[in-house]
Amino acid sequence: MREIHCEQIRAAVRELVLKANVELPSDVVEALKAAHKQEESALARRILGILLTNAEMALEKKMAICQDTGMVSVHIDMGQEVRVVGGDINQAVNEGIRQGYQEGYFRKSVVNDPLSRINSGDNTPAIIHYQLSPGDHFNITVMPKGAGSENMGQLAMLKPAQGLAGVRDFVIKAVKEAGANACPPLIVGVGIGGNMEMAAYLSKKALLRPLNTRHHRAELRTLEDEWLGLINRLGLGPQGMGGKTTALAVNIETYPTHIASLPVAVSLSCHATRRRSCKL
């Protein structure tokens, strides 16, 4: 049985959050550049130009791309042949976040109780998802996500009779209602199927897929392209101030569902879609 020490996990998470908050993923940079090239409105072009300059400055000055360095969700995909030794895995993840946020001069954006709302002071706890499957792999992905876009996410339990058109309209409605608040240009994560919690989870998994990777199933790939076209025809544009670029991509993930259900969740992410992975 392969052993992974908690110390390795702590060190990896620290490194991942330090990089994720400072380096905008290259696929997002490419998508922003492409959008900048094809925008016609002068204001929209200027906004996209500022976002590209900002990404360069963040990298050069080792500063956070966006001051909302988010609450961190951590996805641990581990093989069932792996044994974690040397302590508590959850504590190791949170310690990595605590250290990374301190060293990176990132904002501490977590309150320790949703009702009494006292800042926890170190950006912990993280939201940790474990996925077990055969093998001896151990992959960690971090996604620090800001609340501006997160707050505009939506979930609906549609009736199966509403079908594909119902799902499509719900996705577009979510983007339209988010308007300027979610900081377009957006990356739109769509989870369809499963049950209520699964749809929400899928919509987040969808945001982890690079923008230059389309769905492996042709019919879903077609929907991703079609919905992106519809969303961009809304004309909300960068920062909701008009233009052709309301979204950079639509990523869909699906799962089998109940005969009576058609769950759909939409997770919106701003251009500062921060994600970083490593293998131990």
């Binding site: 500063m63 966006c66 920062q239």
Partner: peptide
């Protein structure tokens, strides 16, 4: 007044 959201360093 709107400032560009996400342009934290700028």
């Amino acid at each position: 007044l709107a400032a560009v959201g996400g342009a934290g360093v700028y």
